[in-house]
Amino acid sequence: MLRLPKFEVEKPTTVDETVALLSEKTGDVMIIAGGTDLMPNMKHELFTPKKLVSLAGVSALFGIREEAGALVIGAMTPLDQVANHPLVAERAPALAQAAGLVAGPQLRRMGTLGGNVMLDTRCQWYNQTYFWRKSLGFCLKKDGSACHVIEGGSKCVAAASNDTAPALMSLDAKLTFANADGQRELLLDDLWKSDGIFNKKVPPSDLLTEIRLPQREVKHLGAYGKLRDRGSIDFPLFGVAVRIDIDANDVVVDAEAVSVALQARPTRIRKFGESLVGTTLGSPEFEKGVQAAASLGHKQCRPMPNVPGDHEYRHAMVPVYLKRTILAAAAGAGPVHAV
């Protein structure tokens, strides 16, 4: 059996205790939430911390609640709860859909929303065993100096592969982090940096405690589209979340689309809303706008051969999935995926 490297586990019960443990020795200490990403990565020796700090006993990090109009989800809330919670379905359909398409049933039960947000980036040259990576001569992201995605590349382009991140970004989610200095709130958009080695601006020793979806002034529709080979288990080969704000007459007043699994960070499709704003759902203008928005996505999204699969095909699927996801959102349907 593929073994885990040796480490010790700490089981704090409060945020303060957790934060104190995390500040001990940076690098040698890591957070374990659901463990569904960390455990395989540790079996691959991508991480070899001496100590794991488990959040499983920190009760303050669990649960979904409304707070002053905002929807607040504890970082340790399992993905299957996010996917099936009536409040999430009502207030954030794209998020419910995305959470429901992460991996398979057991992993959605174990994996957490916070864990999915903080997911390590993925690459076909990286998510492999130590033996495999050693035979390759390692790579830029871990233990090596060469990039095998872009020959001669000096910047890691491992792909953000978290299904929920684009959904959360489309809803302007804010994250609360705790560390020894206290708490701070951050717009999810501001979490990311375009570096596949570690694509977050917040250090790994900071603890994500909750995810906050602000109250929206206007009614919105949302959906998530996920390209993958199988109907279950797989990470996204391309993912896109769409939000369409409408007025009482079904006229689009704003729209956003956020993509994932292309590059190191989830990215907003720029000027996406412009093609749709002002059109009425279902009208010929709207349909035209959908086409224009899809083409825009095709121009902006440039998949690289970082995750498995034919990257040119992934590129060709950007407008198709974008279009289908917009139409699903408009119809109050979704998610868009192959099965």
Partner: peptide, 29 residues
């Protein structure tokens, strides 16, 4: 144990009645 790392489901056990993968779950937790 079929895949080592959470891809196959052969190690599924019920934890408080819900299926989880015992190959990714630490005994200590």
């Amino acid at each position: 144990q079929g895949c080592d790392k959470g891809d196959c489901g052969a190690c599924t056990v019920l934890v408080d009645g819900k299926p989880e993968l015992s190959c990714l779950k630490l005994a200590a937790l």
